[in-house]
Amino acid sequence: MMMRFIVAVTAAALLGAGAAQADMLPSPTGPVILTISGAVSDTNADGAAALDLAMLDALPQHQSTVETPWYDGEQTFSGPLLSDLMQLVGAEGSELRVIALNDFAASLPWDDISEFNTILASRLNGEELSVRDKGPLFVIYPFHEHPELLNEVYFGRSVWQVARIEVQP
């Protein structure tokens, strides 16, 4: 408990310093579930943007009802568009390096988020995603709109248990 407190204080101090330094991105109030680093201009941490669920929920929410190899039948995922998220943190680059909790990583070309309504889902059928349910965040491609994406390459890019994103310049 003490440990958690110390971490929280330290984080708040760091974030406050970051906010004072540069930009308008507010500091997270809840547990940080996503850190965006790399070619990011709007930060709230040391050269990175740390986000909690509330900040993600504040962005426009998109729904994708799709069939995936990891669930039975069609499931409805919801969350912000990756492109909106990138705009929020002022990120611009050639690709996204999306890294999972278990250090699984995949590279998404920038086109994948600018051309398609690719979302970073935080909810499945309205329920928050737990780690056991491959949460907290799940990259979901619009397979229902683009059946041509139904192949191993895009399955590989559909990273789940997303923890960090590095924006490659």
């Binding site: 440990m3 190899p69 990891w70 039975d72 909790l101 278990n102 737990s130 780690v131 056991r132 349910d133 491959k134 789940w160 248990q161």
Partner: peptide, 29 residues
């Protein structure tokens, strides 16, 4: 202190394993 760190890592590890094994019962391979 170490216990707590290890404990958190252990729990995450379990959660991830959990999400992994549920997939094995599925036929989409």
């Amino acid at each position: 202190h170490d216990d707590r760190t290890n404990h958190a890592a252990m729990m995450t590890s379990y959660d991830i394993l959990y999400s992994r094994v549920t997939l094995l019962e599925r036929g989409s391979f």
